[in-house]
């Protein structure tokens, strides 16, 4: 019980930032919590960004985060590929324009016991269908997805599309590439 609360707390602290975010401590200093990136994402982007709540930490409250349950971040092979609206909207430079090869928001975590393909012995693989990176998700011989966290860019398309309830996938900031300032 107690450990689950702690693990939940740690998960909350684990915030997936929009593409091109500076390294966390600098990002927090530069971000004025104006919410322009979130607004721009809603208008010109997919609408994945939202404000962190107080549960993510006092200092992070109000800063932007990627919520794949609302929508995926289409920074690679999607509508924001050429000009990410969140980066363009940022007035302070907390979000910077980066090359598409540098983009890695985080990586996806797989909960084996919730996955439909594992429970039913094949019959899903929606995550593989929607993945924009070839090789990041591969079907094994038992028709179960296999995740390559190094290739995964953390766009959250698979998390958004997962038909399991509760979702068998979770987006974490593990392995995120952030700009050193």
């Amino acid at each position: 019980m107690f450990s689950s609360i702690i693990s939940k707390f740690i998960q909350y602290r684990n915030v997936v930032r929009p593409p091109g975010a500076l390294i966390e401590n600098v990002f927090l200093k530069l971000c004025t919590k104006c919410g322009l990136c979130i607004e721009a994402c809603g208008i010109a982007g997919t609408g994945t960004l939202e404000k962190c709540s107080i549960f993510h930490g006092l200092e992070k409250r109000g800063t932007p985060r990627v919520n794949p349950l609302k929508a995926p971040c289409e920074i690679i092979k999607g509508r924001c590929e050429d000009s990410p609206p969140c980066v363009k909207a940022c007035p302070t430079g907390a979000l910077q324009l980066v090359d598409s090869s540098f983009v890695k928001l985080g990586s996806v975590e797989w909960y084996r016991d919730r996955c439909i393909a594992v429970i039913k012995g094949g019959g899903c693989l929606v995550c593989y269908e929607v993945c924009p990176i070839s090789g990041a998700i591969k079907p094994t011989r038992d028709r179960i997805p296999e995740f390559n966290t190094e290739l995964c860019i953390g766009c959250g398309r698979c998390v958004n599309a997962c038909p399991a309830n509760p979702k068998a996938l979770k987006l974490t900031s593990k392995g995120a590439k952030r700009i050193q300032y």
């Binding site: 929508a71 289409e74 999607g78 509508r79 958004n160 599309a161 038909p163």
Partner: peptide, 9 residues
């Protein structure tokens, strides 16, 4: 379009 993809785009 497929789940999570924007049809308009």
């Amino acid at each position: 379009s497929v789940r999570g993809s924007d049809t308009t785009y």
